[in-house]
Design a protein around this nucleic acid. Structure first.
Lengths: 190, 190, 190, 190
DNA sequence: AATGAATGAGGTTTCATTCAT
DNA sequence: AATGAATGAAACCTCATTCAT
């Protein structure tokens, strides 16, 4: 038998994410993906059970990539405030470096598919950060509010900045980044 | 000539928004919409040019509804801080009262369709609020940052709270609402 | 709106039955049927829900045709023996006059589809004849055995003769017909 | 070179016959067969040239099994009437003991495949019995009619009884068996 | 011998849209 | 205005088969 060709799997994933960015959920199709990935449409079904399975696996895959990048350079001894800033910088960097992944996640996370496939809420993305928040709260550095709120202020404002930069509404800019980080910090700090 | 029947138009809109919430962009179709709205698929083409035209018009329609509700009870003499709080409360109320509209907007706003149809970014949503931010800035009540940032902190955190409530992750709760409003205010205040 | 075109329905039915005779269950396809019937494949779905629905409805349709022809010229006053002979002659005539219908029924009646669609056993074909058998039995003209057995001897031997004629194994022949009728009668008579 | 594995061959045959019974000609496929037989689809092509070849060989194989069982316990000195009865009992026993084989034969024998593969009519099944009929006719025990007719009355009525039993329309029953044998004998005896 | 990978062809069905009434 | 009929195009997916190991 032949080996499974990692290039094919990768080509399919890449093609899917690109297409989803270009045309959206309503217009992607297995044959368009196959054509872009330069494989037969039937080949996709060697790697994935069906379209849903494919999209679901890709979502988990990309979310994992973001998740790892997000906590890069942070460990349990990192001071809370610094960690908070680093997470936001990591997020910004990931989103700008991986525009397609980023937009894919944005689109997927608002789609009913996520519930249908029971791929969990966006919360799970933050799993490695829960301890950090807990620590910040006991040290009275962070506000004594629901962890979800803290994480929201960490994730969404910076994500909006990234989107504005990608759309061309705003130029990418260290000053902007610092402003948003400061604002988010003001929101969550005790 | 007979009149176009507003009931039919409304039924089509309602059916589309419901379906988009239930199954997502990849699974809606003109015939499913027609069946749900209890009209013939051909009837949809009496009211809209084609599928894209239909979705685009609905998006503008719903966005307008949200936009109006958002600035409800606010005028140029409303103090900045109060106005900020009212906007957030209005947003929360709209999202919870109009779950389907809300989720429709969320889904649409991340889709490439929005660029294709040139329906403008989410900025336009805030048009009536630009003056308010300007005023806050000159009065040194708000931070001297890009208006987009101020509005981001006004819109996204509360929206995430609404989503968490709708998903059942959090119960709806005046305390939560106050906490998020306070956090957002801390972010934007000078 | 347009009228439903009876010609189209008929063309689809005819094409299906012909093809099933020519290539069998494993090789018919909706697109082959459409091509032969000179309609779009999508048009078939205007008339039938899906392939199974289509085949099932055709089966009932053809079975009804056979059923009616079978009891042609017979009423409650027809003497049992004559009626028995007439039924067999009617069957033979139907099968030879409607080779395609006949082979379609033969093929369908051995297929698992018939159970899946719950189209009833071949018994129902004989509904109008049950009374006749009952009468024959009370008059002690027929053997006092299960009605199913009587009907079996009425239906299957003559059907085999028809098949042999169609296959070219035997020429069609009044003598043969009489022989089989006589044999069947010897089997069922008291 | 390794030997072909009889177990695999057997598993493939078994899987095919089971599936044909369960879903019919229109729904079997090489991959379903492979999955059921727990081999790779490619393995089937080690044993058979292609799908048609496979089905054809299986048909001949199963028909041979039935053919042998049918004349079990009979030799040239067996009296005609007894032989006739034994054949019918053998048939009944085979069909009930080998439901899947039986239904497979029924389904295959009405399919156009049988002509396409030129696997001969059902006549060949009776090859070993032709002499018996000849003998019966010269001894004036059987009616002086076409051999095909005699064999029809031997095969089809009892087969219908078997089918009715398998379908659950009738319980299996020595009395029923005797009745049908008697009826068939009345049909063929001089 | 045995098999997972790979695929072009084709399967069934639904699509968005137009037509005729 | 409203709609059932009709359809070419395209959707997802499975098919029988071959290839490379």
């Amino acid at each position: 038998m032949r080996h499974k060709d990692d290039n094919k799997n990768e080509a399919i994933t890449q093609a899917t994410i690109e297409l989803l960015n270009e045309v959206g959920f309503s217009e992607i199709s297995m044959s368009k993906i196959a054509k872009r990935a330069k494989v037969s449409a039937a080949t996709i079904y060697v790697y994935f059970e069906n379209k849903e399975d494919m999209l679901g696996k890709m979502y988990l895959n990309v979310k994992e990539k973001l998740s790892q990048r997000m906590s890069h350079g942070i460990n349990e001894s990192t001071p809370v405030k610094l960690a908070f800033e680093l997470i936001m910088r990591n997020l910004m960097a990931f989103n700008l470096d991986n525009k397609a992944y980023f937009m894919f996640l944005e689109q997927f996370s608002t789609s009913p598919l996520i519930d249908k496939l029971q791929l969990g809420g966006s919360v799970s993305l933050f799993n490695p950060l829960f301890e950090l928040v807990e620590k910040g709260r006991t040290e009275k550095i962070l506000k004594p509010v629901n962890t979800l709120f803290i994480l929201s202020f960490c994730y969404f404002p910076i994500t909006q900045l990234a989107k504005a930069c990608i759309n061309g509404q705003l130029e990418i800019n260290e000053k902007y980044l610092n402003e948003v980080i400061q604002m988010s910090w003001d929101a969550v700090k005790a």
